[in-house]
Computed example of a mutant assay.
Amino acid sequence: MTELSNVLRIPAAQYIRMSTEHQRYSLENQVTAIAEYAEARGYAVVQTYADAGRSGLSLKGRDGLKQLLSDVVTGQRSYLAILVLDVSRWGRFQDTDQSAHYEFLCREAGVAVEYCGEPFENDGSMVSTIVKNLKRVMAGEYSRELSEKVSRAQKQQARLGFKQGGQIPYGIRRLLVSKDRQPRFVLGFGEQKGLSTDRVVFVPGPIDELRIVRRIFRMFVEQNQSMSSIARELGRELINAELPRWGVSGRWWQYQSLPA
């Protein structure tokens, strides 16, 4: 009896996406909610497209959604509907027409898009169209405001002298400090802070590394040597295991370890 009921169900694909938001948007929670919706509405999920840890601001990096759209447009699919938890999981595009365009591509190919956690039916009625577009605007606005808040907080932390990610320069070490700037200990390679209230600041590294950094600057500024000649000279002195090779890429300085 169960096998027969499954055969009679409408084949559907599910699209799930999780970024770094609240736990209720975890992939497992989305799958559970979609499964309940499918059971109640007569769908059978036959394929899953997933984007884990991806922002909904654009299509870039969302290989799951790209593959879904490709399968729908080219007809390389075996389902008649796409089940998504809500409008924001489909995307938080700043241009609401972008989200509408992707949904239109599916509908034009004969594949319906169903939002399992929304209080409206995606049936093309005037009410559902208005509510859906409002949800799209709200989703985009949420991401825009969140981006501004995160950017503002990062800039403030940087002004206070706290590390905001990125590579550790040669001759520098990371010092873990409390929220009151009380020093805790120097972090080793690969170590991370354990408390969210702690901060990381840069401090001078070992004196041997500082001597090498000063020497590199003297060779470059006073002796007008190029970065490649500096690297070769230091390499010949058999200290390449401890030295970075400085190179120029555009207008940014970057380094990498010298070859043995």
Rank of each mutant, 00 (worst) to 15 (best):
D97Y: 07
Q192D: 07
V73D: 05
I168D: 10
R89H: 00
R17Q: 01
Q94C: 04
L238P: 02
I16K: 09
Q167H: 12
T20C: 04
G110D: 01
I10K: 12
K149G: 07
E118C: 11
V84S: 06
P259W: 02
K66I: 05
W246C: 13
E209T: 02
Y43E: 03
V248Q: 12
E148Q: 08
S70C: 05
K155V: 12
G64V: 01
I82M: 05
Q225M: 15
P119V: 08
R62F: 00
G250K: 08
R136P: 06
A109M: 00
H101R: 08
G171D: 09
A13S: 06
A139D: 12
R77H: 13
G165P: 03
R62P: 01
A260P: 14
K132C: 09
R214W: 08
Q98H: 11
R211N: 09
G64I: 04
W246V: 15
T32V: 12
I10T: 15
W90I: 01
R136G: 09
S125W: 02
A40Q: 09
E118W: 00
S55W: 00
F202A: 09
A231E: 01
V150A: 06
Q30W: 01
M219L: 15
W90L: 12
R211H: 12
Q225W: 14
L195H: 13
A35G: 11
G194E: 13
N6L: 14
E114C: 13
V127I: 10
G205I: 05
S5W: 06
V200I: 15
A50F: 07
L160E: 11
F104W: 09
D51Y: 06
F93N: 07
G140L: 05
G171R: 09
